[in-house]
Each structure stands twice: as C-alpha cells, then as structure tokens.
Design a protein around this nucleic acid. Structure first.
Lengths: 107, 107
DNA sequence: TTTTAATATTGCAATATTACGATATTAAAA
DNA sequence: TTTTAATATCGTAATATTGCAATATTAAAA
C-alpha cells in the first residue's frame, strides 16, 4: 500500500512519528546544522553548500517549515531561514519525554 | 527518483537521519511504548494490541532491530522482544547532542 | 510422528518520497 | 521598463515504504 494507518494510533504517537519522519533525511539534518551555524540568517548558499538541486532544497525546507522548526522571512528577493528556537525546544522536550518514559524494560 | 543521495552527507548526518527515519512511523513508536510497558518480555500480543497484520508487525520489528533498539530472544516458539537499554541511551544522547548543538540561531 | 501456534519471509499492489528540469513569481538592479 | 537573481511550484521518473495474503519455518504439544 504505502499508506500509513494513522487512524489506529493516538495523537501522541502520530505527532512523535511525524517529527521523527521529517528529521529522518540527511539533507534536512544538514540544513538544520547549516542554518544554525550561520551568524547571518541569509541562507541559500544551501544549494551550493549541500549539493542538491535548488528545487530539491526548496522542497526539504518546506517540510521543515511544516512542523514549525524553521521560519522563513522574506528579505527582498532572498529568504531568511532560521530555526524557531521555541518550537525546537518543545520538540526536543517531547522526544526526551518519549525516550525517558519508554526505556524501562525487563531484560 | 526516490533514492536518497547519502554519499553527499557525512556519517553523522546519515546516522542521525537513519535513527529518525526508523522512529518515524507511529506503529514503531507504539511498539516501543508497548514493549517498554510490559513487565514480562513475551510480546506479540503486539498484533492484537496494535491492530496491524502479523506480517506488518514483524516487518516493523525488523526495522527496530536494524538500528539495535530492540533485541529479540527466542523462547520456544515465542519471541521475547525487549529494548536494548544501552543502545537506547546512546541514541538518546546522540539526538540530544544534535538538538543542543543545533539550536543556536540569529533571529 | 502429526498437529498446532508463533513468527518470519515472499510477492505484490497501492501509495509516498526523492530528485530534478522546466517554468512561474517577484523584487531589486540596470 | 527590462533584466537578473532568488526562490517556489509543477510535472514526472525512479525508487522506497506500507500493508497484507499466502506461504515457509520451527518448536512445543498432542
């Protein structure tokens, strides 16, 4: 099929999986690392930096925006992408909560 | 295409993305939660618990094993799945390291 | 031994993702 | 105004993922 049966899972499970999924591509990991290491916000040297076509980078940026992890601000004909730190921390907390609650075990 | 260009990313980026990707499905999140909440290790009530076909659950378990997050031990004709706590903590640390190193920003 | 139960594997159909060229769009620069 | 540069969107091909029925496999139970 290829279609995920989201209806049979609860909201927490679907949300967590959604975050993980968006972060689950090396280009998106690389974008986040690069954006956070720039002092200036004017990005999109990303295309050169990462080595994927402009259309592809744009698509990955869209996915990172879809979970609120990146904000894009228009600055003339350039875009200023930056990490939404508040959202970032919220997500980190949710993931840690998952890890901490889930690691107890019997073996 | 559908093929990820892993060659153009470094090992850290690919590893992180791989973890995230495996965790990026609600069934796999649910499996981890369920396994960790059982006192006994004898799982696979999972099929009933989660509501996907046996073949599908088996496939998801395989992916979780592929990143070392679950161990499976044969117990007669049953399988005892349990979380590899050491591995679990390693991954949690790596993810936290990524989040902490990456959140600095300019906006 | 034969049966049964638990799990894995195979094969396949449906859908999703990745990547990119081509083509918009839009705002500054000329 | 025309050109140019930066970015987004569209269309599409190649590949991956999800899910399941059917079929192995294997070990205990009968």
């Amino acid at each position: 099929m290829g279609i995920t049966k989201t209806q049979i899972f609860n909201e927490e499970q679907n949300d967590l999986a959604q975050f993980f999924k968006v972060l689950g591509h090396p280009a998106r990991v690389a974008i986040l690392q690069y954006v956070s290491n720039q002092n200036a916000c004017i990005c999109n040297d990303l295309v050169e930096e990462i080595g994927l076509a402009q259309a592809t980078i744009s698509q990955h940026l869209k996915e990172l925006k879809s979970i609120g992890l990146l904000n894009g601000e228009i600055e003339g004909k350039k875009m200023c992408y930056c990490i939404n730190v508040e959202r970032w921390e919220t997500i980190q907390n949710q993931l840690n909560n998952f890890f901490n609650k889930t690691k107890s075990n019997c073996c």
